[in-house]
Every structure is written in C-alpha cells, then in structure tokens.
C-alpha cells in the first residue's frame, strides 16, 4: 500500500479521528446481529425472557447448540438439523466441483479455441446469469421428473450445476482472456492438444480464479433455499430448508436460543470458507494477465 503524503496538522488529525470513529461505529453496527445471535445461542431460555437482546450471557451453555444439532423438531421429525447439514454438503460439494470444472473448460474453449459464434455462445451464457430462479421452477420440476431424479440429491445437484455454469463460465472466460494466446500457440507448436494445454499450461496458473469460483458457488449453493425447498424430499432437504422448518415448527414456547444456534450452524461453513479463502477471493477477482 502506498502511503499518502500529508502534513500532520491538528485539523488533519481531527479529520482522521472522525473518519476512523465513523468507520468503527459502522463496523460495530454491522457486526451487531452476529454478536446478538452468538450471545443468544449460548443463553439458557430463562435468561432470554428475563434480559434484553444485548445483555451478556450469565450462565453460558452449549445446550441449545446440541439441541439444534440433534433434537430440535423440523416439521414432523425431531432429530435436529445435523442430518440436513450433511445433506447440504452432499449436494454442495459435487455441485461446486462439477460446475467449476465445466466453467473452466467453457472459459478455456471460449477464449483459446474460438469458433464461429463463440461470442454468441458466451453472450447467451451471460444471459443465464440474469434468469430469475422462479422462472425455471416449473420447467425444471418437469425436467427432473422426466429424468427420474426429482426429489433426489442428484436432481438438486443438476439444478445447481446448470445454474452455476453461467457464473463459472463468466469467471473463467474473463480470467483466460487475460492470458496471452501466444502461450497456447506455443504449446500447439510443441505438440500439445486441447486437454493437454488446459491441464499443463492453463490450469496451473488458474488458482486465483478457481478459488473465486469455488467460494462463489459454495456460498450460492449452500445458501440456496428456493431450489432446496422446491426440489427436495424430507430426506434430501438442505440445511437451509431444515432451518426454516425448525424455526417455523412451534411446540409451545419459542426457543430462540435453539433457533439462533441452528442459524449459526447453517451459516458456519460459508463463514469458514470466507475466513480461509477470503483474501484469495479478492485477489482472484482483481487478478489480471499472467506474465509469461
């Protein structure tokens, strides 16, 4: 980072101080919901009804987390959201891997093996990024029925892959456009073919955009609710749908601490992914050409 050269007058310092003050306040405000959730999720129910939202937990307990994971009722069943948590992984991991792989190959073909109409194909794929989910619900249900995979994990994976390809193709296409075509020409002259060039020349320099694609797809698919609720059966529901069911299932008193714990559990994987790979995400999005 380049430092800005400026004389440190008292007025300038005051300005700086104000600026930082405002930014810190904004940051606190931004993180507040998370803090409240976290605090509420470790309070016993009695403390919640007695205190306020912002009062600190007096007797922290992990019981709400355990209940949310293994005992809470989601609709008719009362075995927590743990099972659905793994369900989500079983859907998200293959969907992310498949859509990223296809996106990478698409981006590679659209930039390094141009064909007549490749720009049109790309434009159509871009258009796919703007199709609202609701529009395709019915045709997709029909299609899944024809394929015989409705209400299955495979069906959900297919839906997410189809929707994800538009984005992953866009990512990889824009990344590969910045890689000199001469690299591919040189590899062709050296005797490498389509897949060999992809595997040996392009993929090794694609790490930044792979990270972007994986994070993006992971969060999108993990957080999806609409497809999850529309195309799943009770045993293939992703965690987002289970969370909704848990919160909406009332058995007398409302267990806010369990709701909050469940919400935290459901949000945890995306948080972890961001913390681990967040800096690569920004780096990848701003990555330009690779100097050879």
């Amino acid at each position: 980072m380049a430092n800005v050269i400026r004389r440190q007058t008292p007025a300038a310092r005051l300005g700086r101080g104000l600026l930082y003050g405002v930014l810190i306040l904004a940051a606190l405000f931004y993180i507040l919901p998370l803090v409240v959730m976290l605090m509420t999720s470790v309070k016993p129910l009695s403390e919640i009804s007695a205190g306020t939202l912002l009062s600190l937990p007096q007797n922290p307990t992990l019981e709400p987390w355990a209940k949310a994971w293994g005992e809470a009722c989601t609709g008719m069943r009362c075995d927590g959201i743990g099972g659905y948590f793994w369900n989500s992984f079983a859907i998200v991991i293959p969907a992310v891997l498949i859509s990223t792989t296809i996106g990478a190959l698409n981006g590679y073909a659209l930039t390094k093996w141009r064909f007549k109409g490749s720009e049109l194909v790309f434009a159509l794929m871009l258009f796919g990024c703007f199709i609202p989910f609701q529009v395709v619900l019915l045709p997709m249900a029909q299609t899944l029925g024809w394929l015989g995979i409705s209400s299955s994990r495979a069906g959900l994976i297919l839906v997410h892959v189809v929707f994800g390809i538009a984005f992953t193709t866009l990512f990889f296409r824009n990344f590969y456009v910045g890689i000199p075509n001469e690299l591919v020409s040189a590899a062709k002259l050296d005797g490498a073919g389509f897949f060999r060039i992809f595997w040996r020349i392009l993929l090794p320099v694609s790490a930044p955009i792979i990270v972007v694609s994986v994070i993006w797809q992971f969060t999108q698919i993990w957080n999806d609710f609409l497809f999850g609720v529309a195309f799943s059966a009770h045993n293939t529901q992703p965690v987002t749908v289970a969370l909704n069911n848990l919160v909406n299932t009332s058995t007398g008193v409302r267990e806010y601490n369990v709701d909050m714990a469940a919400a935290m559990i459901a949000a945890l994987p995306t948080l972890v992914v961001y913390v681990l790979a967040g800096k690569y995400f920004v780096r990848g999005l701003t990555a330009g050409s690779v100097k050879g």
């Binding site: 001469e182 002259l189 020349i201």
Partner: peptide, 29 residues
Amino acid sequence: TPADRDIAMVFQSYALYPSMTVRQNISFG
C-alpha cells in the same frame, strides 16, 4: 496441424509457460 509441421517458433512475448521452470519449458516440446 502446427505440431505436425516440424517447426519451432519464438514469439514476440516469448510465451514461456509461467508455471514451469526453464528446464521444463525447454523440454516440454
């Protein structure tokens, strides 16, 4: 195809494979 013509080319931008060492670059062909 370019590979079947028994030619080699030196590019203006050099087009060295960025992920490979010099040794791998030279022996790739």
